[in-house]
Design a protein around this nucleic acid. Structure first.
Length: 443
RNA sequence: GUGGCUGUAGCUCAGGGGUAGAGCCCCGGAUUGUGAUUCCGGUUGUCGCGGGUUCAAAUCCCGUCAGCCACCCCA
């Protein structure tokens, strides 16, 4: 007997609770992006494999979900959005006023071994500014990233935005006589510095006649190494975000296409994982779309940030509250007399027409059971429909008080009751019966 | 691609040669117009899969698959 089907390796099922958590993250991304005047766009999930080869070279094919389609085309599930963005922006760049502020939330696929914080399928928030050369654009993106973290409930004890400048490194290398061809090799050595033993590091640098002490001195120069870094730091400080920012020239980022400031967001104390990263890539639109346009952007994946939210107290509680809310109803309609089920249906519809979230038992069910279900579904309020209809009973499930009213007033009565019960559960109003506020309803 | 740990009920896990266990969850009842607690009753398994040793394997051995973690990589 087959054991049934499982998800493919590295793919995830999203049960309602997981889906609610995912949507909480998505909504936060979208809300903050809108706050910064960014507009949302989306591209195809399937693209020609060549689009990715053009940017990253043939080696990435090993990391792609790629196949030949029925028209004999070599296609890939998208591993990233930037090439698509470059194509889209270049194709219609005359249609848009510069600079463009675009963001996207979508699913991506990479054929990799999956582990904590990394799967073969994930969602990513991409945020880019196109057509703006000033480092003020880099600062704007960095600020947006910081605000997402703050919106999720993180504070300056939880994360840092570490910023560096790829151009400063290029200048340094050129001064030291590193040739253009060797530049990316040199930058990779620097990028891996923290993970390399000192003697191996010195050995790797030897062909360039550069001493590790030169590198260390350069990294120690911090923001002095780059006017752009100073501009960004000053900008973020003016926004009151200075505590979140740290110049760290040891960040290079492996990517060959970065040309200017680069930044990463790291958690503090939970293993220092990269939560988000990005930078300036002024050459890429020319390479892919044939249009020269300055560009910078960053991305944040859903897996690491969701883990981090769950593992951090305040952000975890905030998310749990929204998740619980999204899985609850406000009103439960109790059918006390089966004869009145049609009338109950009418009341349910009235409440739903008023945009309330309403549930009810669909088949004959004992009264106690219905109240129990009401509570389990998180309802603030129950409406009891029985033989006395058109009189109905509206019960505040938190305070355990009830009133009767005519069915014509039921919407108003329910609305008032919900407000009262929310206040009781928040501790604003005294609980008339002295019943303990339930766990999960409080705070 | 390399290495470590783990696979037993829907979930968390115990059992380490002698007929498969606990808690939680779920369902029903005590309770025919009111939620909690409690109590009673009930369902669920090729012990990941394949082979070997043995009178006898969930248990020991070999292999394999899957999951988790770390390395490599990380657009």
């Amino acid at each position: 007997m087959a054991k049934g089907f499982q998800t493919l390796k590295g793919f995830r099922d999203f049960y309602p609770e997981d889906c609610a958590a995912r949507n909480y993250i998505f909504n936060t991304w979208r809300r903050v992006a809108h706050r910064y005047g960014f507009v949302e766009y989306e591209g195809p999930v399937l693209e020609p494999t060549d689009l990715y080869k053009k940017k990253s070279g043939d080696e990435i094919v090993g990391q792609l979900f790629c196949f030949t389609d029925k028209g004999d085309r070599d296609v890939s599930m998208r591993p990233e959005l930037t090439p698509t963005l470059a194509r889209m922006a270049a194709a219609r760049q005359r249609d848009f006023k510069k600079p463009l502020r675009w963001f996207s939330i979508g699913q991506f696929f990479r054929y990799e071994k999956h582990q904590k914080g990394r799967g073969r399928e994930f969602y990513q928030f991409n945020c880019d500014i196109l057509g703006e050369e000033s480092a003020a654009a880099d600062a704007e993106l960095a600020a947006l990233a910081v605000d997402i973290m703050r919106e999720l409930g993180f504070n300056e004890e939880d994360f840092r935005l570490r910023i560096s400048d790829r151009q400063a490194w290029t200048n340094f290398a050129t001064d030291k006589g590193v040739s253009d061809e060797d530049l990316s090799t040199f930058l990779q050595i620097v990028d891996k510095m923290e993970r390399t033993k000192p003697e191996d590091f010195a050995k790797a640098l030897a062909p360039f006649s550069i001493e590790p002490t030169d590198i260390e001195a350069f990294i120690a120069s911090g923001a002095d190494a780059s006017e752009n870094l100073q501009l960004i730091v000053n900008d973020l400080t003016a926004r009151g975000m200075g505590d979140y920012v740290e110049v760290d020239l040891s960040i290079v980022r492996g990517l060959a296409y970065y040309t200017g400031p680069v930044f990463e967001i790291f958690d503090i104390g939970k293993g220092m994982r990269a939560v988000a990263g990005g930078g300036r890539y002024d050459q890429l639109l020319g390479l892919i779309g044939g249009v020269d346009m300055a560009a910078c952007g960053f991305a944040m994946g859903d897996m690491v940030i969701t883990d981090l939210v769950r593992e951090t107290e305040e952000p975890g509680e905030m998310m749990a509250e929204v998740v619980a809310e999204s899985q609850s109803v406000e009103v439960y309609v109790v059918v006390a007399d089966e004869e009145k089920r049609p009338e109950a249906s009418r009341v349910i519809q009235l409440l739903r027409d008023s945009d309330l979230r309403v549930a009810s038992s669909m088949t004959p069910t004992k009264l106690g059971k219905q109240f129990q279900t009401a509570e389990q579904m998180g309802a603030y309020c129950a409406v009891l429909i029985g033989s006395e209809y058109p009189q109905v009973t509206v019960k505040n499930l938190v305070a355990r008080e009830e009133n009767t009213c005519d069915v014509e007033e039921v919407v108003d009565e329910v609305t008032d009751t919900i407000v009262e019960s929310e206040m009781v559960s928040l501790g604003i109003l005294d609980n008339p019966e002295g019943v303990e506020a339930e766990e999960g309803k409080s705070s």
